[in-house]
Design a protein around this nucleic acid. Sequence first.
DNA 1: GCGACAG
DNA 2: ATCTTGTCGC
Length: 235
Amino acid sequence: MTTVGVPAGWPATEEEARAVQDRLRARVVLDEPGPPPGTGHVTGVDVAYDDERDLVAAAAVVLDAATLEVVAETTAVGRISFPYVPGLLAFREIPTVRAALDALPCPPGLVVCDGYGLAHPRRFGLASHLGVLTGLPTIGVAKNPFTFTYDDPGPARGSAAPLLAGTEEVGSALRTRDGVKPVFVSVGHRVSLGNALAHTMALTPEYRLPETTRRADALCRRALQDATTRQAPTS
DNA sequence: GCGACAG
DNA sequence: ATCTTGTCGC
């Protein structure tokens, strides 16, 4: 487990944070297909918080894309770097997530984020931001439609419908389980929407949420517990 | 001005 | 995100 502080020069106000997004947005790459689904590595990242103790724990879990077996996993703990503000989630999650990614012993391949990429008020959500900073291909898979609208996809797993910001398509509502609420997929960096959807399908053979985020979610919660409890770690 | 709003 | 018991079902 790595320990991280808030990076020097990290935005302190919402105004500064929005300015950073407006500046970095130009560096997002949207014309690459990204890694083919089912090959190489796929890495899930997620974060858990303890606002009381000003603690944040992140986890990165690398899966073999073909078998979905765990190849490697890391955690990082730090101080909360930004309050939760809708549209500025990346400033709260990225420092600790980066530390976890940096600690991995192998290349992460495609990174799957718990949240949005292009589907964002300024078209620069967590997944896009993390992609630009790391250079890695990223996608976002969110559990809620945020401020966007969509027509309900068909009831069968694999059905998808456009996720809309007004008339602009910013992602897809994708049904990953028959008759269950869809997830909301958007492109982050260096991946096409079609490939993002295919990856999400490959990562959901059994549950609504991708194995990557399920594994990362469980691990960062454990890491936060261990950091809070300060007792014998589970592993 | 008011309400809504990824995690 | 997080606060939180039992409960229905495979």
